[in-house]
């Protein structure tokens, strides 16, 4: 197996996307025995966790969501204007 293929297997293992042989135990062995591969694995796990934890999906601000809905559906704009006039 080429170095490039082994590196791809490590990445697939990190993402839980291993689809064919070798199985996860073989990959674990490879990682344990080779310092370079172990670093590759640790680095990718570290980056994946930092990115997924720290840059979680945030909700769209209501102001922007409403603006989009009003632009798409002009009747919502009409209703919003109508009710705001009733209120004030």
């Amino acid at each position: 197996m080429t170095q490039e293929n082994i590196e791809k297997l490590i990445t697939s293992y990190v993402d839980g996307e291993l689809t064919e042989s070798p199985d996860t135990n073989d990959i674990k062995d490879l990682i344990e025995k080779d310092r370079g591969l172990k670093l590759d694995y640790s680095v990718q796990v570290f980056i994946k966790s930092i990115i997924s934890e720290r840059l979680k999906i945030k909700p769209v601000p209501e102001r922007i969501k409403n603006k989009i809905i009003r632009k798409i559906n002009p009747s919502k704009k009409f209703l919003a204007t109508f009710f705001s006039r009733l209120l004030f």
């Binding site: 490039e4 590196e7 791809k8 490590i10 990445t11 697939s12 993402d15 590759d40 680095v43 990718q44 570290f46 980056i47 994946k48 990115i51």
Partner: peptide, 13 residues
């Protein structure tokens, strides 16, 4: 995709 992911992570690291 896999190669780019690895590259992206190593670059970020």
């Amino acid at each position: 995709v896999i190669s780019r992911l690895r590259r992206a992570r190593l670059m970020l690291f």
